[in-house]
Amino acid sequence: MQIVFMNQMSGADESGHARSAQVWIGEEEGGWRLGWRSIEQEGDFFDEEWYEGNSWNELLCVYRHQLAKKLGEGFRPLIEGVFHESGENGGKSQVSQKLQCYSELYGSEELYTELCAWRRRKAASGRKAPYFIASNRVLRMISAFIPQTEEELLQLPGIGTSKASEHGAEWLEITSKIERTTSFPLDWVYSQLSEEVFLSWLYKQKEQKYKQELERFQIRRTMLLGIAEGASLAHLEERTSLSRRDLVEELEGLEKEGYDTEQLLQIELSAITETEQATVWRAFEELGDTFLKPVLQRVYGQAQTEKGEAEEIGGTEKLYERLRLLRIRFRRAEASKVKMS
């Protein structure tokens, strides 16, 4: 195996003892390997193989995810810049991140739980998803810094004048009952929060982000292999554990990126008559393909679709699925027209 990249890492364990490691990428017989070697003070070493395969893009996904985990555990590269992303080391972004870090590590769990309960009640009464009311990040901020006035609320990242106007009075009613030991403005956070604690937290955030990227890459690879093998959406549901709706969304993304999805479309649309497909096509031409509800009502009738939506029956969901699949073909045809003109 030929090593094409290696970086030395160093850190300390929970007892403060120094430790070192190496992260490496190797090439062997046209394939890629990725690994980690922990080196003990006595000279012993322990290897972890993170990846072996032919996909450089998948290797990079695994590399970012696994390295973020190690950095979160306290390892640091001897060569700086190995894991740097533009804009992460300064400016408003880092100010907001440090406040978020402090709020997640030192916020009141009891107050956060109470705020989450408030959000659930608010979402239920307004028939909205909870994240439309307030994000977890915002509620963590409130639970950590316990604002007592609207002016203080507006100093928290993620709370603008609109949110403060809409929910501020209810938030302040909850926080006014709690005695706090810190104050506003929040400049004290930046000196009280150690750089090492902040960096470890930051890399934990990266770990979650890159884990999601890796999972999505693996799902897309599974889908592409399935499409090539003639799998249906039902088969892909079993292979990926995604819902049909999520699979169609991923399919739309693959089509946009230039992958060939026609084999799967043929399988799923084979039960739809040519007459129905032609009717849907004309509706796209006349109404556009941005919004599906007008097309649904034009093709299948308003009374039927309204009843389906009201009762949340599977039939309406299936009709929307058909339209999304046919829209992939329609958009492909429209893009070809543009290229030829």
Score class of each variant (00 low, 15 high):
Gln302Thr: 05
Ile133Cys: 06
Gln218His: 10
Glu311Phe: 14
Asn54Phe: 15
Pro147Asn: 05
Ser20Gln: 11
Lys204Ile: 06
Gly72Phe: 09
Phe75Gln: 00
Ser135Ile: 05
Thr305Gln: 10
Thr161Gln: 13
Glu237Thr: 05
Ala228Val: 05
Ser336Gly: 02
Phe184Thr: 06
Gly168Trp: 01
Arg180Thr: 15
Arg331Val: 03
Gly160Ile: 03
Phe75Met: 00
Gly31Met: 07
Asp260Val: 04
Arg127Met: 12
Glu317Ala: 12
Val189Cys: 01
Lys206Val: 02
Tyr259Lys: 05
Glu285Tyr: 05
Ala283Val: 04
Lys307Asp: 09
Val23Thr: 09
Gln266Asn: 11
Thr175Cys: 06
Leu78Trp: 04
Ala231Val: 02
His65Phe: 13
Ala278Asp: 10
Gly160Ala: 06
Tyr320Ile: 01
Tyr51Gly: 09
Ser15Tyr: 14
Glu262Asn: 13
Lys293Leu: 14
Gln297Arg: 08
Gly168Ala: 01
Glu152Ser: 10
Leu214Val: 01
Ile25Ala: 08
Met6Phe: 11
Gln205Glu: 03
Glu49Met: 10
Asn57Thr: 14
Val338Thr: 13
Ser341Phe: 11
Trp201Ser: 05
Gly53Met: 00
His167Ser: 11
Glu286Tyr: 08
Lys293Glu: 13
Gln208Asn: 12
Lys92His: 13
Gly126Ala: 14
Glu152Ala: 08
Leu156Cys: 05
Ser165Thr: 11
His17Ser: 09
Val23Gln: 08
Trp36Ala: 07
Phe184Asn: 07
Val62Gln: 06
Ser103Pro: 04
Ile313Asn: 10
Asp289Ile: 15
Tyr112Cys: 02
Asn57Gly: 12
Glu306Ile: 02
Lys293Pro: 09
Gly26Ile: 04
Lys209Val: 09
Ser93Tyr: 13
Lys307Ile: 08
Gln97His: 11
Cys116Gly: 05
Arg220Met: 10
Met9Cys: 02
Glu286Gly: 03
Phe145Asp: 05
Gly91Val: 02
Ala129Glu: 12
Phe184Leu: 12
